[in-house]
């Protein structure tokens, strides 16, 4: 029991709620094609779940979601999105022209998956970035 307030309620509720939030968030991220939602919204939820952990469990949460993870997640998400954009250029398309990404496949299909992966990458990116911002703010800053 290392949580900041040593409250059982807080501990139990947060343990219970966080997975639910995350599952719903994943649904929001991946289901952006059909419903309102997408990477940004889902990413924010994912970040919210981690921030809830941070608030509820204090130091312990850093073991589950390390301090550096946010930054890495954000950077990798953005990097993946960037590479996704570059991929069609290898096959003669323009930047982000998903229809060219993998030549043998049908353009419509490719766009569908292009959108999907873009949303997923954005989800990771927003997740990581917001957690990183929170962590930075939570340190209070070094002067």
């Amino acid at each position: 029991m290392t949580s900041r307030y040593d409250s059982v309620f807080l501990d139990v509720v947060s343990r219970g709620v966080v997975p639910l939030i995350q599952i719903f968030a994943l649904y929001v991220v991946t289901h952006g094609h059909y419903d309102p939602g997408g990477g940004f919204q889902g990413g924010v939820m994912l970040a919210a779940s981690i921030i809830l952990l941070r608030v509820a469990q204090g130091e312990e949460s850093y073991e589950r979601f390390p301090r550096a993870a946010g930054l890495y997640l954000a950077a990798f998400g953005a990097l993946a999105f960037c590479l996704l954009g570059f991929m069609p250029q290898l096959f003669g398309g323009n930047f982000l022209e998903y229809g060219y990404a993998i030549p043998p496949m049908e353009a419509v299909e490719l766009r569908y998956w292009g959108i999907f992966f873009a949303e997923v990458f954005i989800g990771f990116l927003v997740w990581g970035a917001l957690v990183a911002i929170y962590d930075a703010l939570a340190t209070g800053g070094f002067d």
Partner: peptide
């Protein structure tokens, strides 16, 4: 792009560069 949600289609494809 087989995407019923037009906002997503605009967001990630037509104006994907904005989103990027």
């Amino acid at each position: 792009s087989k995407t019923p949600n037009m906002v997503t289609a605009v967001l990630a494809d037509y104006r994907g560069f904005d989103t990027f």
